[in-house]
Design a binder for these strands. Sequence first.
DNA 1: CCACAAACGGACCGCGCGGTCAAGTTGTAG
DNA 2: CTACAACTTGACCGCGCGGTCCGTTTGTGG
Lengths: 199, 199
Amino acid sequence: MTSPPRLRADAARNRQLLLAAAAEEFAERGLEASVADIARRAGVGKGTVFRHFPTKDDLIAAVVQERITPLIAAGERLLDAADAGAALLEFLAMAAQQQQQLDLSFLQGADRLAPDAAQTQERLFRVVHALVDRARDHDAVRPDVTGTDVILLMCAPNHVVTYLPDPPPDLWRRYLAIIFDGLRPQGAHPLPHPPPRSM
Amino acid sequence: MTSPPRLRADAARNRQLLLAAAAEEFAERGLEASVADIARRAGVGKGTVFRHFPTKDDLIAAVVQERITPLIAAGERLLDAADAGAALLEFLAMAAQQQQQLDLSFLQGADRLAPDAAQTQERLFRVVHALVDRARDHDAVRPDVTGTDVILLMCAPNHVVTYLPDPPPDLWRRYLAIIFDGLRPQGAHPLPHPPPRSM
DNA sequence: CCACAAACGGACCGCGCGGTCAAGTTGTAG
DNA sequence: CTACAACTTGACCGCGCGGTCCGTTTGTGG
């Protein structure tokens, strides 16, 4: 185990500035925002970015991790909520809110992910599965829907909104509601295709 | 009205080869497939591509148009189907099938679209609205859902499947079924956000 | 206060992209 | 068959990107 050799004061500050700037830039312009722009926004040189994050992918992973970790925690907390269905719905709402266009290409490419990122992903998936299983047990979601299904659908509300020129910031709620209604047992029609291999 | 001055035989053939190659390439690798690769696949030089389509965007528009036109026709035909709900569902299935990952960024950016492309888009939107209105009148979809909602959700089934390493070719059907269940009136919960401005 | 490692910055590199062009090739009207 | 316009081609261009490197600056432990 290599313990990190403690950061210099300014370096630590710059690291935070970078994470913040990157998050904003990614939110506004998607993952293709250039490293140079992020550096400028953070008020540092481009070289500094690469000193902290050897690769753009590493920077993305760091930002995602920062956003995802509290989400996981919230999800785990929601496992104790009284209403299992409402808990899942709220989790999905938090996920959508947290992402706000940070369209997680993080989900795909489970391979070639920094080992710690892969671990975070693992935890995220596990908590989604748990929430879904619990909701299913309480007849709050249809029996034929799996955790993997929900993982795949998780980003959809944010994504569909993307097609609009400049979407109202809460419009995703509308589509989350529609999709979630599709997950409910009431009036569910049988699904025409088996679920994909578990994630 | 400028009538196109008729194409030379080989030019016409190459044009078709290009459209086919582009469609395949886009399907496999998304819209970022390079023009050079498309040219190679079609067995022509890169310059030829730009002779037929002044810009990569024009090529994309042409491919999309080629796919979308028959879809519109099918949609208009479905307006006469007996079961309005089933008609809408089948239309959405055709749309998803036709696209197969040709994730239509065509929907956004209604401006800066070649005028004929804009017109095609217009027709597509109109037929979706008609199908949805008719389905709503027959109580086959919930009353609070609009044509614009369906337009936005149209690509979702294909999109979500994208997160999987290599998805079964028909998996989108599963997610279309879920989303469509969310559009049905049975057990619908009120939507938390007003619909976006009509498209 | 000083010396030195740590951190910084920005010029620089190579690459792949969309798009251009001038020289060569080919279908076709007459 | 010929002559010419239509068409093809691939070398070429400029650009913006991710990533490198080294001369300079700066925080900090002794």
